[in-house]
């Protein structure tokens, strides 16, 4: 199953410029997803960067992008099963993040995310990010949750 960008907008609440995946190229419901994101020099994160600065794609956005791939895996699987969780999607945590490389404008990120377990409105996943034949990141444990709007109160 391949999901194009427009279809991802029906699954995820994210929009430009924070929708950080472009296409799903492999999808095994409740198990595994492979999603891609093309990095361009047009990304907002490069807008104000000095010419001689390091142009590696920020780790925060890389993890966010992987998390969104995981979100699609969880939410689309649940929707296909007729049990879509309600609420606002939140990336709860990313643990054991290991960086073994970097990505730059012109690279295509390929996230491979596996669903470890789902507990109620909480999904636990693991993931890797590849650029070509290079694995540039692994996340040992990633938590995505859905929370009702009234449970999301500002920090006191």
């Amino acid at each position: 199953m391949i999901l194009e960008h427009a279809e991802l907008k029906r699954i995820l609440p994210h929009r430009h410029p924070i929708l950080q995946i472009d296409r799903v190229v492999e999808f095994e419901p409740h198990r595994r997803i492979v999603a891609t994101k093309a990095i361009s020099g047009c990304e907002p994160c490069y807008a104000d960067l000095a010419d001689d600065a390091d142009h590696r794609f920020p780790t925060s956005l890389l993890v966010e992008s992987m998390g969104q791939a995981g979100g699609v895996l969880w939410l689309h699987s649940a929707a296909l099963s007729g049990e879509p969780p309600a609420g606002t999607l939140i990336l709860g945590s990313a643990r054991d993040v290991t960086l073994t490389g970097a990505a730059y404008p012109g690279d295509v990120l390929r996230h491979v995310v596996e669903l470890d377990s789902v507990k109620g409105e909480n999904a636990f996943m693991t993931g890797e990010t590849w650029v070509g034949e290079r694995r540039i990141a692994t996340v040992g444990s990633m938590l995505a949750v859905m929370r009702a709007d009234d449970a999301l109160t500002p920090a006191g």
Partner: peptide, 22 residues
């Protein structure tokens, strides 16, 4: 917070292969 709590619960379930209701 509630996110840490659910993480602790999930890890316990995995380690001891037990199902604990939320």
């Amino acid at each position: 917070d509630s996110l840490r709590a659910i993480e602790i619960l999930a890890r316990i379930e995995k380690k001891y292969k037990v199902d604990i209701p939320q």
